[in-house]
Design a protein around this nucleic acid. Structure first.
Lengths: 225, 225
DNA sequence: TTCCTCACCGATAGTACTATCGGTGAAATT
DNA sequence: AATTTCACCGATAGTACTATCGGTGAGGAA
């Protein structure tokens, strides 16, 4: 039945994967407090002491988890850009800009939850990493917004664009979690809300650097869906 | 110098206060993982075993902390409503609606951080409490927004109003923390951003229940500051 | 003054977790 | 076939924390 022609290194890598997967699950359900080598090893089906074959110590595991999360995040951001570019028109492109992150969160909510917690927990081993990731994502989104036609060409507007991006990110996360908790069953409604939030904010930018924005005509002032 | 005519119960209450204050500080700087009876007692200047004179166990302390936080939150919400009502005009009223929570967060950022962490940590003793507080705050803000003239009279609009309120809350928290971390030095700019976000969102509501909104004339369509 | 109360103390039993160590057998190498 | 490598194991030393217990002395009631 089960063909098991696994080389030694393949088997080791498999166990390592199992450990990482188990760690993520425990981190999600029980938090960093509940993450112990005992539980991780047991969930991965090996002895507690064998944990140290794969990781120098617990800290090392957290570091690896952070790296993996970072990779996944970066890949997800690139993917989102790529897909949004394929949208048939500006309105749909704009909706994609918000829909894609929402869907990404819903696909792997545990990553967001873990990162989110670490972001606000100075004692977390992943605290610094989570802060950087959060900033990177803000800048990514700021670039997206800028790509929608709202270039900020002075310091003040640039900072406002960053604030808008950070605010919209926070709202995106909140709505995605609300969706997962069953409060907002329809994800498209969340997209509606995010689009409308950003429209208001970008209108402010537009009016403050009216000349530049006017040249872009009406990509945002277009009709709602 | 120091008059010390403290009755026994007064002294006990003082120690209890010191314990709670110490616990909050530790929770903020080291997270729930770092909160131990040893540290709390030491920081409050008593023996570890004396901790149990004031609290049944560690869980009990967390519960009390949650209750205190809830009280403070409710008081803060009432206070915010009261102050916002005193605003000279509609525009300033609107700005107050966003400025007051921002200032409240900046005054006691540790409370938000603690609540925020617990909100996303299922293992936290304050998880359920934090969820309820977050919902209560969303509804409070939704009521504020409704008071600005955007009554939602059908199920769909009501849900959208809730989503907007939750999104704006999230953005408010994010911007307040960004301010505290030094990224956004000017709190008024944060108010600008929040006002503009909400303007966009409420415009959506307005257009979807145009008849009701039209009656309210233009409290939101007014000029920016 | 006498007696009681109780907030606080030090010591400690019990528990949970981390990390190390020597041993084992199967895979890989020779 | 002989030898080496190494992923995994059980046992355990060491550490940190929780919660209990009996004792003590100053506040407060009689």
């Amino acid at each position: 039945m089960s063909s098991t022609p696994l080389s030694r290194s393949e088997a080791k890598d498999l166990t390592r994967r199992r450990l990482i997967r188990a760690a993520l699950a425990i981190l999600d359900t029980e938090g960093e407090t509940g993450l112990t080598t005992v539980k991780v090893a047991k969930a991965a089906g090996i002895a507690q002491s064998s944990f140290y074959v794969h990781f120098r110590d617990k800290q090392d595991l957290l570091r690896v988890l952070g790296d993996e999360g970072g990779d996944r995040l970066r890949r997800s951001m690139r993917e989102a850009r790529r897909r949004a570019r394929e949208a048939p028109d500006v309105t749909e492109h704009q909706r994609d800009t918000f829909r894609i992150p929402l869907e990404a969160i819903c696909r792997h909510p545990e990553l967001l939850r873990i990162l989110h917690r670490a972001r606000h927990d100075p004692s977390s081993s992943m605290h610094e990493f989570a802060k950087e990731a959060s900033l990177a994502y803000r800048d990514h989104h700021a670039a997206d917004l800028a790509a929608l036609g709202y270039t900020a060409d002075n310091e003040r507007d640039r900072r406002r664009l960053e604030m808008i991006a950070e605010g919209i990110n926070a709202a995106t996360n909140a709505l995605a979690l609300g969706h997962l908790e069953g409060r907002y069953p329809d994800l498209e409604e969340a997209v509606d809300v995010l689009v409308s939030l950003s429209k208001g904010a970008l209108r402010m930018l537009k009016s403050s650097s009216a000349a530049a924005a006017a040249r872009e005509a009406g990509p945002v002032a277009g009709p709602g869906r």
